[in-house]
Write a protein that binds this DNA or RNA. Structure first.
Lengths: 206, 206, 206, 206
DNA sequence: CATGAATGAGGCTTCATTCAT
DNA sequence: AATGAATGAAGCCTCATTCAT
């Protein structure tokens, strides 16, 4: 029987991860020192190293958390049968997050992307995130094509990639400039999605 | 080595910048040491510091080069009057780049985005890149709306943002996974753009 | 190593300062590397940088210590009412220091003077040292003049400057050549001071 | 027959030495880079290295120049037979130098002293300077003692040391603060010298 | 379990010096 | 003889990590 409950351990982990996220969003992975993270978490280095064996591991754990969170968003939205509604839902989920938190999330995502370029573990996480999103989107597209909602000439995977771009581009642009007009962005996004829908005319496509 | 031509100096600068780009794309800004860059450029530290007064400055110069290059792409494409053709052109320009170089460019872009989050100078460059792209796109959209090509209910700026996402998303996805099927991606992109064109039906916009 | 007493921290500081002094006296500020100081203090660079944030700061702290020490000497001597006795006292204080330590002190002083020429902070310290000595001497002279001991035609400040020269010159000469005959030097110094005393003849002052 | 006259070579040497002196007085030996010196001398590094094989050598040459100049001062003054007049002469010589040049000279002296502590060659120069001054002063004192001007109980060498302090202290104090009142300083100095003169009373001395 | 002082490898940068032109 | 671009050793400092208390 450990002296501390499992829950307490997990709470400490979270505490560190949150401190790290805050630092990372503010200063980036490489400008955030372990000292910064310790200070933010109000913990000593020794304590932090009880929960994570390296800074790398903290980054990875943080990226993993992001992945799970993002997965949650899309899973929640996927419940909606209607294709267009999915975008609404995703947008709503995004809107549900407090502004500051969202901004931080965007920055962390960008940071994680860059980190993925040289840390294979992080890359793995990013790819898994991308792949699961891709798969979700592709499935939706395929269903819509079967229903005749979407032009069957379009490659479902490719549509999924573009849909991902909608969100990744928004994350990037909001990360760089929080002032972007999101509702209008979503409106355009939906108009474009709607435009890919079957309209009786053949979309020559390319 | 006595006084040397201006061209030689500029060539050296390029040599260093290319070496740096190569390192940065391979290992990221923060894992590339000056030593790495020097080795890649086949130059001594002292020589490199004749041309750039800090690693930071190399990063910034590199980001600036990226900005100018990106600007060139879109300017070249903007010559085309037809709205849809713009996408073709941009895609062609992208395709015109050798595969490896493109891949490297994508990685550098991602790297630069992340760097922008904490280096105000780099952020400035990124913002300027984004802004000039945005403006180009918005102008195209406005012209298309005047011609009746695009639904006038859509905010031109917002459309521009989404168009930027098309490309940024592609850059990100290709950066993370070079295997992405670009032609199909472009096809979908064009289909979606075409879908925003005026079709006689009102796009309610949300 | 957990939290440690305030005294221990101060002891470490002293340990570093002493190591630095030793290096500085032996090799000068600019030929003493941080590595030298660390080795002398038997501490790692990281440890030293916990206590001083730069080599510069070590130099300044050392100069400040010298200042305080010098202040102590003169303050101790000032207790003596009799004018001539002051010189005796100062000389005694000097003699009270172990030979090696004195030699080191002289070298450090010379080093600090030179450093003062380009480090404004050090210059500030040197000036303050000089000023407080000057003031002490001038006060003594004024009192001696009131008692009729010293020719009232002489500017007390100027006398103080010359008195300072007695000591600074000795420091310099001993720093350059430890073999100087100090007792004889002091004897002459006192004879000269005595000579400025009122003797019934008017000293025309030039 | 060299392409350049001996005189031209010497002129270049002087040009470099003057540039170096200027830099050294302004920034000290160790903060003056060869680049600084080259810039000040309007010469390229290669050119400078034709005349001096190292920075060290420039420092030493400069110190040697200072030594010779100082020697000239005292030699000039020594012509005067009268003891007190020597001080007048030395003071006059000092006064004869333009203010700025003097200030620079003081700083260089201080710099040279410090450098002497760790460069045996420079130390040799300083010692030689000191020794020749000492000898000159001692000789004067001995002569004065023979004439009965100065208390014969005083060690001529010791008096010489103190006389040197008069000047070294002034150099130091003026180096640190150009505002010092030199005429008054000299007046006191002379009063003190006069006080060591034989007055009929025995100066108990020590 | 926690603390935080200490470690030390390694990064960025400077600058005295060289040498091809 | 002069030039100035290039060299590369070495210095200062940071920071992820450890471990005695």
């Amino acid at each position: 029987m450990p002296k501390v409950t499992e829950a307490h351990l997990e709470a400490r982990r979270q505490q560190i991860l949150e401190a790290a996220s805050s630092c990372f969003a503010r200063k980036g992975f490489h400008h955030s020192t372990m000292h910064d993270i310790c200070a933010e978490a109000q913990l000593s280095p020794g304590a932090v190293y009880r929960y994570f064996s390296s800074k790398e591991e903290i980054i990875e754990a943080m990226a993993e958390e992001e992945r799970v969170r993002a997965l949650g968003y899309i899973e929640a939205a996927k419940q909606r049968g209607d294709t267009l509604e999915l975008l609404n839902e995703l947008a709503n989920v995004f809107f549900g997050v407090v502004e500051d938190e969202w901004q931080q999330m965007c920055k962390l995502d960008i940071e994680v992307w860059a980190e993925g370029l040289r840390n294979p573990r992080v890359m793995g996480l990013v790819r898994r995130t991308f792949d699961s999103h891709l798969e979700s989107f592709a499935e939706i597209v395929r269903m819509a094509q079967e229903r005749g909602d979407i032009n069957p000439a379009l490659d479902p995977e490719a549509v999924a990639h573009v849909m991902m771009s909608f969100f990744e581009g928004l994350v990037l642009q909001k990360g760089m400039d929080p002032g972007i007009d999101v509702p209008n962005y979503v409106a355009v996004m939906k108009a474009m999605m709607k435009g890919t829908f079957w309209t009786g005319r053949t979309l020559e496509g390319s």
